[in-house]
Simulated scan of single mutants.
Amino acid sequence: MGLLGGQAKAMVVTSSRKEAVRYKLAFDKYVSEHGYAGIRAMVAFSGEVEFNAADPDSTAFMDQKFTEHNMNPDLKGREMRKAFNTDDYQVMLVANKFQTGFDQPKLCAMYVDKKLAGVECADALA
């Protein structure tokens, strides 16, 4: 069984909320283009994300507001921790959320795409 087969879960810790949005859009596109079934990601970040002209490669994202709610339409009102514990989602893409105090026994991998140091590093990896 592969890394994401069965009940296994993975988390990707991104460097910012904008990068979490980019990861989610790219992940969904890749899964769709390759016809993968049963692999879905949710994205977790606080607030609202908007791109501006100063952001690299942001033309496609201009004049859009990204939130957890509109990027995770299949949550259907469920709390993220509970939804991630189901077979509905296998990957959680996060920006400064769920890195500490998140106890998910099915989590078998954490990919960190940001610099971690000091207490933040110890907390995230614990």
Rank of each mutant, 00 (worst) to 15 (best):
M1P: 07
M1N: 13
G2D: 15
L3P: 06
L4D: 09
L4V: 05
L4Q: 02
G5K: 07
G6D: 14
Q7L: 14
A8G: 08
K9L: 06
V12A: 06
T14A: 10
K18M: 08
A20R: 03
V21D: 01
R22G: 04
Y23V: 05
L25D: 12
F27Q: 00
F27L: 06
D28P: 01
D28A: 05
K29M: 11
K29Q: 13
Y30L: 11
Y30F: 14
G35C: 09
G35E: 11
Y36W: 13
A37C: 15
G38K: 02
G38T: 08
A41D: 12
A41P: 04
V43I: 07
V43G: 00
V43P: 01
F45G: 00
F45R: 00
F45S: 01
G47I: 07
G47A: 05
E50I: 02
N52A: 07
A53C: 08
A54T: 12
D55F: 03
D55I: 01
P56M: 12
P56R: 06
D57A: 08
D57P: 02
D57S: 09
S58H: 08
S58T: 10
S58Y: 04
A60L: 08
A60K: 04
F61A: 02
M62R: 03
D63T: 01
K65W: 03
K65D: 04
K65F: 05
E68Q: 11
H69R: 13
N70M: 06
N72W: 03
N72I: 03
P73R: 03
P73W: 07
P73E: 11
R78Q: 10
E79C: 05
R81M: 08
R81W: 05
K82Q: 15
K82F: 09
A83I: 04
A83D: 11
F84E: 00
F84C: 01
N85F: 07
D88S: 09
D88Q: 08
Y89S: 01
Q90I: 05
Q90D: 12
V91T: 02
L93C: 08
A95M: 04
G101E: 11
F102Q: 00
F102R: 00
F102V: 04
F102I: 02
L107Y: 02
L107S: 00
C108Q: 09
M110K: 06
Y111R: 11
Y111D: 15
Y111T: 15
V112A: 01
V112E: 08
K115A: 15
A117G: 14
V119F: 12
E120I: 11
C121Q: 15
C121G: 10
L125H: 08
A126Q: 14
